[in-house]
């Protein structure tokens, strides 16, 4: 009697939810499902919805496409232009230079690789605000600031860094490049560990020169990382806000530092024109989507041979 009771208890326990192999994974992923629904899907749909509205507390109304019609104004195009230039520079700098650094850090003759690697990586630990503060001091407007002193040393004209379009772009690109260089070097270094030494030996036997070795042995091995980094850098570039904020806060002379996200912040948060801000966001999403597709197509990520 007692035994069967025990067994049913045991059975009950076994079949209870705590022991269920079928229920467990759903319980484990439930935080994600919940956060996806509340913190991603709902805001996403809400953003689309908002972009068709004039959002005023108490009397929000649908206004069709007029937010989108307003988006394409000269200020937006300035922001788009700044952002695009920033994306192009950061993608070129942050995919090619780290590749070069990684290849040389992986050279059989180099020493102290770990020290160099750590030194290049340390900037990634700083926040944009702290890093930007010191950039502002190094690239100060006065003739005595370090960067200007270096320029004068070479007989060049000193710059008012934050007040010219080209130099402002230089500061923003420079700050981002400085912070991300080390991380990207590490990505390439990791990929380079997968290149088999035999292939280099075979190439040597065939009498391949350095360029041919890079073209046919090294690059194919690091190409996936190259594609990954150029995609990530593009997306992050279009999302740029902090690098501009730390130099200009929210207003820059002639909008030389305005980015698309900066424009969303200005319109959506500062001017509280949420509908318009949301519309800029949707346009941004469209731009990122189109650019990413083109990029993946051009870099050949869609080609069969890579899959």
């Amino acid at each position: 009697m007692e035994r069967t009771a025990e067994r049913t208890v045991e059975k009950k326990k076994r079949s209870s939810i705590l022991y269920s192999k079928t229920a467990a994974p759903y319980i484990f992923v439930s935080p994600f499902i919940l956060s996806f629904l509340v913190l991603s899907l709902y805001p996403f749909i809400s953003a689309i919805n908002m972009s068709f509205q004039r959002v005023v507390p108490g009397q929000t109304e649908y206004i069709g496409f007029s937010n989108f019609e307003r988006v394409f104004n000269p200020v937006f195009f300035t922001a788009l232009q700044n952002t695009t230039i920033y994306v192009i520079w950061t993608v070129v700098i942050l995919t090619l230079i780290p590749m070069l650094f990684a290849i040389f850090l992986n050279h059989r003759l180099i020493m102290f690789t770990n020290v160099f690697r750590a030194a290049i990586f340390i900037p990634a630990l700083t926040s944009v605000i702290v890093a930007g503060t010191i950039f502002r001091m190094i690239f100060g407007e006065s003739d005595m600031a370090f960067a200007n002193q270096v320029l004068s040393l070479f007989g060049l004209e000193t710059q008012e860094w934050r007040y010219g379009a080209a130099t402002a772009m230089f500061l923003m690109v420079g700050l981002a490049s400085w912070r991300w260089m080390g991380v990207n070097v590490l990505y390439y270094l990791a990929a380079l560990q997968n290149v088999s030494k035999d292939l280099y030996e075979a190439a040597d036997i065939d009498g391949a020169n350095a360029w041919q070795k890079f073209r046919n042995v090294t690059f194919p091995a690091i190409k996936p990382i190259f594609i990954f980094l150029s995609t990530i850098t593009t997306i992050n570039g279009f999302r740029m806000f902090e690098e501009s904020f730390v130099f200009f806060e929210t207003t820059s002379p002639g909008n030389i530092g305005l980015t698309i996200v900066g424009y969303i912040y200005q319109e959506g948060i500062q001017r509280n024109d949420m509908g318009f801000g949301a519309a800029i966001g949707i346009v941004l999403l469209g731009i990122i989507f189109v650019v990413s597709i083109i990029q993946l197509y051009v870099t050949g990520a869609f080609k069969k041979e890579d899959s």
């Binding site: 994600f32 996403f44 999302r239």
Partner: peptide, 26 residues
């Protein structure tokens, strides 16, 4: 399982800034 994993990748790719204003309203 596959569907959920695809959702994870999807959120990774959609910029947070798009959802920022509705999240703020929330």
């Amino acid at each position: 399982k596959r569907f959920i994993f695809i959702l994870v990748l999807l959120i990774l790719m959609i910029p947070f800034e798009i959802m920022m204003l509705p999240l703020y309203t929330m």
